[in-house]
């Protein structure tokens, strides 16, 4: 597969109001390129939702529904169930892919229950969580996805407390624990990896889950042109490893040739500025490095362990 083989359609039209350089814009465009026909989209309240549908404008060229913030799994479940019933009763002709789109806030935190319920019940849909590690739409507040030490407006880098004090929630483990047929992480900086995984997610026989890293210039305090570079550094430092879990089998899809120190990822970002100035907080950076190394080893072990 090459970029040239990707379809020309833009199911998300230009003219949306996402910030310049927004990782959600790139990622959702790429996600939608994995479809040959428009999916039915259920979107959670978030930057993406707000920026793409200010009445009377919509950027969506697909059927699209946004009821609220925390219910995306349930709404997609309802759409899927309706489709099943309507097709069975001859009132709808063909199956359309159901695509749930929600941010990290809408998935890791407030929407976790509705996602879990829907996964457990086995509804056939593709759920994409776009994580920019915080509640960006409401002004950069911490979420369960916010990495340790990151500044947000509710985990400020204060005189005493240096940003978020907790580690990121390992959402993939929670999702995988539902024994769904397919789950994967993607970064828009690796578009063909993303395409391949989306195809698998679409074809999965049951619920599938994609965790997409979507760098956010505004919330990460980074220049807009660095969005793709940061999506790459996240992978190369193993802060955000790219892997998939297919029927319980782990596979790392991008092993960095040279695993970079986490500092490469942290330093360019304003949200980690307090780790480098006024003086370098080696203690925190080392702790992050140790944590990332541990998680990276863990996932390699899982890959070995689940090999056939």
């Amino acid at each position: 597969m090459a970029l040239k083989s990707l379809p020309l359609h833009e199911y998300l039209s230009s003219g949306h109001r996402l910030c310049a350089g927004c990782g959600e814009g790139v990622t959702i465009r790429q996600i939608l390129k994995s479809f040959d026909e428009p999916p039915i989209i259920c979107n959670a309240t978030s930057c993406l939702e707000v920026s793409t549908t200010p009445f009377p404008y919509t950027s969506w060229r697909t059927p699209w529904i946004h009821p609220a913030f925390e219910c995306t799994g349930a709404v997609a479940a309802g759409v899927e169930a309706a489709q099943k019933a309507l097709i069975r009763k001859g009132r709808k002709k063909k199956w359309d892919v159901v695509l749930a789109l929600a941010g990290d806030g809408g998935t890791y935190d407030i929407g976790l229950q509705s996602l879990s319920g829907a996964l457990e019940r086995g509804h056939k849909f593709v759920y994409v969580c776009y994580t920019n590690d915080a509640y960006m739409n409401t002004g950069i507040q911490r979420s369960g996805a916010t990495p340790r030490a990151a500044w947000t407006t509710t985990s400020p880098a204060g005189k005493v407390i240096p940003g978020k004090t907790e580690w990121q929630k390992d959402l993939m483990k929670i999702v995988v624990a539902h024994d769904i047929p397919y789950a994967a992480t993607v970064s828009p900086s690796y578009p063909m990896d993303l395409q391949r995984k989306m195809k698998k997610a679409i074809q999965a026989d049951g619920p599938s889950f994609i965790l997409a890293l979507t760098p956010c210039p505004r919330g990460w305090r980074t220049p807009p042109y660095l969005t793709i570079e940061l999506g790459r550094l996240a992978v190369q430092t193993c802060m955000f490893p790219l892997y998939e879990v297919e029927n319980g089998q782990y596979k790392i899809t991008m092993k960095p040739k040279r695993k970079l120190p986490v500092e490469y990822y942290l330093r360019p970002q304003g949200r980690f500025r307090h780790l480098f100035t006024p003086k370098t907080r080696h203690d925190i950076i080392n702790a992050i490095q140790a944590y990332v190394d541990k998680k990276w080893q863990e996932i390699q072990k899982l890959e070995q362990l689940t090999q056939q």
């Binding site: 039209s13 003219g15 404008y57 919509t58 969506w60 060229r61």
Partner: peptide, 11 residues
């Protein structure tokens, strides 16, 4: 909104 992708007209 009944005109899919009409945001394209927005500069």
């Amino acid at each position: 909104i009944l005109e899919p992708g009409n945001a394209e007209s927005y500069r």
